[in-house]
């Protein structure tokens, strides 16, 4: 049984719901390996991708996911939408809804944008990243990648390294990983770790070498230079000296540690080239799993009939 009508965040997803999503995604992965990578399940359904921020991976992933389920997928990017003529976000969403889409996927630079839209329209909404708030599909594909390699999630220790303050990926992962019984440690310069983040049930460390010694998974984050980080770091080079994951630092970690990264990667800044290309790095597996996870969500949101209101 899958109850959510929209996927606005990982916050609030229950363990059994996450398991259903991951199990379904596991099955859907096989479809992408067929010669004809398409099933007719969502034939006649319409999915609108409304992206107000640049994105290659996520937007393409949602588009491919919809198309492999035979849905019609329409992409709208912020610069080509009527918002440049002064239309506000709710009006845009309501106008799109008037054309009867079955799912609206939204990415926006304002935290809470997806939730605000979902309150003003009836159609299911998937949050594809809103400001510094959440990016739930990324967290789900991270979990699927980890589960696929480690077998299970319960009890695993994860270190998340980098700009915690500006990362929606981190927040979604904290909620999802805690729901699955995992232990989360945040690592980064003090200026990039929000005060009182421990209240979400995570621990904090400021030294990379020490923090990764006993973990099963290391998640590296990109320094988001587009988000005014110059006040938080003296230089990228200094950051790199302290927090870049190199093979030398990795010697301190467990032999079977997994390395993941939500992308895009700034090679040589947060992760060394050889580490990125080593067999412990699952960065491209994450991208492959992203399609499966998004197919699973579309199927679960649209597979049953809609006789409930919210």
């Amino acid at each position: 049984m899958f109850k959510p009508r929209s996927i606005l965040g990982a916050n609030g997803l229950k363990k059994d719901e996450i398991v259903t999503i991951l199990d379904t995604a596991d099955t859907f992965k096989e479809i992408s390996t067929r010669p004809i990578k398409k099933v007719p399940t969502l034939r006649g359904r319409t999915i609108i991708n409304l992206f107000f921020e640049p994105s290659t991976r996520t937007r393409t992933s949602f588009e491919i996911a919809g198309k492999r389920l035979s849905a019609d997928v329409i992409n709208i990017s912020g610069s080509t939408s009527s918002t440049v003529k002064g239309e506000n976000l709710i009006d845009t969403a309501q106008n799109l809804e008037a054309m009867n889409p079955d799912i609206l996927v939204i990415r926006h630079s304002q935290s809470g944008a997806a939730e605000m839209i979902s309150r003003n329209i009836q159609c299911p909404v998937i949050n594809a990243g809103d400001g510094f708030h959440e990016h739930p599909t990324q967290a789900l594909l991270d979990l699927q990648t980890i589960r696929e390699t480690k077998g299970s999630l319960e009890g695993l220790k994860v270190a998340i390294v980098g700009d915690i303050a500006h990362s929606r990926v981190v927040r979604s992962n904290i909620y999802a990983m805690k729901a699955m019984g995992m232990e989360v440690r945040l690592v980064g310069p003090p200026t990039m770790i929000p005060v009182e983040i421990q209240k979400l049930g995570v621990s904090v460390d400021y030294y990379l070498e020490k923090a990764i010694q006993d973990v099963d998974v290391i998640m590296m984050l990109r320094i988001q230079t587009e988000r005014q980080n110059r006040y938080l770091l003296s230089s990228l080079r200094e950051y790199s000296n302290l927090f870049c994951l190199t093979s030398k630092i990795l010697e301190k970690a467990k032999d079977d540690v997994l390395i993941i990264h939500p992308g895009p990667v700034n090679r040589g800044v947060e992760i060394a080239l050889d580490v990125m290309e080593s067999e412990r790095s699952l960065i491209l597996n994450q991208v492959t799993n992203g399609v499966a996870v998004r197919m699973a969500l579309m199927y679960l949101l649209l597979g049953g009939s809609d006789d409930s209101v919210n």
Binding site: F2, L300, L302, G303, G304
Partner: peptide
């Protein structure tokens, strides 16, 4: 789409 919930999919 006629059931209440999406049926589970297996491999």
């Amino acid at each position: 789409a006629s059931g209440k919930h999406p049926p589970p999919v297996e491999k």
